[in-house]
Simulated scan of single mutants.
Amino acid sequence: MSVNIRQKVLQSFKTLHKTRLNVFNGDALALSEARKKINEEYKKNKHVTDQTAIEELIKYSNAVEQELKMCVIQAKEVEPGVYQATITKDTAKLDNMPFDEFASVTQSRRKTHSKCQQNEK
């Protein structure tokens, strides 16, 4: 393995662990389990020598890091039935769309009706 690839692997390993510390801050169990999983995955792929395969694994590591940063949030129950979520600057925030059950049922019926008319022809 070239020195450059080795540095990239070590950097992705360190970055994942830093992300783990930020995402699961204050949750000892999650920190421990995430640490075990990261170490396990890197040990499992330790034997890989093909440079292309290593590059793909590094890309996968980067994707996992982004997923952790953007999609994982912590929530604590502050009182029965009431939770407080920890949202970071990296957390993906989506626009809320109100759900109108009647409108979706009506639209579905229209599609079904138009398909039935096409089949009759």
Rank of each mutant, 00 (worst) to 15 (best):
I38V: 03
E40V: 03
E65T: 04
S61N: 09
T86L: 03
E41M: 14
V48S: 10
L68N: 00
C71P: 00
P98I: 03
M97W: 03
V105L: 03
I87W: 12
I58P: 04
N96S: 13
H47A: 15
S104L: 09
N96W: 06
E40R: 15
D50N: 14
E101N: 10
S61P: 08
E65Y: 00
A103V: 07
E79M: 08
A34H: 03
K37G: 04
E41C: 05
V72N: 01
D50F: 00
E40H: 14
E101F: 08
A34P: 02
K89A: 15
F102D: 12
N39E: 13
E79G: 05
K93P: 00
L57S: 07
A103S: 07
D100C: 03
A103Q: 06
V64G: 02
L57T: 09
K93G: 02
T91V: 10
H47F: 14
Q66L: 03
N62K: 12
T52R: 11
K69F: 00
D90G: 02
K76N: 08
D90K: 04
D90W: 00
D50I: 02
K93S: 07
E56Y: 08
E33G: 02
I73W: 04
P98Y: 01
K76G: 00
E79W: 00
H47S: 15
P80V: 12
K36Q: 13
T106H: 07
A53P: 00
L94D: 04
Q66E: 08
Q84W: 04
I58S: 04
F102L: 11
K43P: 05
D50H: 03
D100K: 06
Y83M: 06
H47D: 15
K37A: 15
Q107L: 09
Y83K: 07
I38M: 04
K93I: 14
D90H: 06
Q51N: 13
A34T: 13
E55D: 15
L57D: 10
N96E: 10
K37H: 15
N62M: 04
K76V: 05
V64K: 11
K37M: 15
K89L: 12
E33M: 13
Q84K: 14
K43W: 03
I54G: 11
K93L: 10
P98G: 04
A53Q: 10
N96Q: 10
V72W: 03
V105A: 05
E79T: 12
K93Q: 10
D100W: 01
A103G: 01
N96D: 11
M97T: 14
Q74A: 04
L94F: 11
E55L: 10
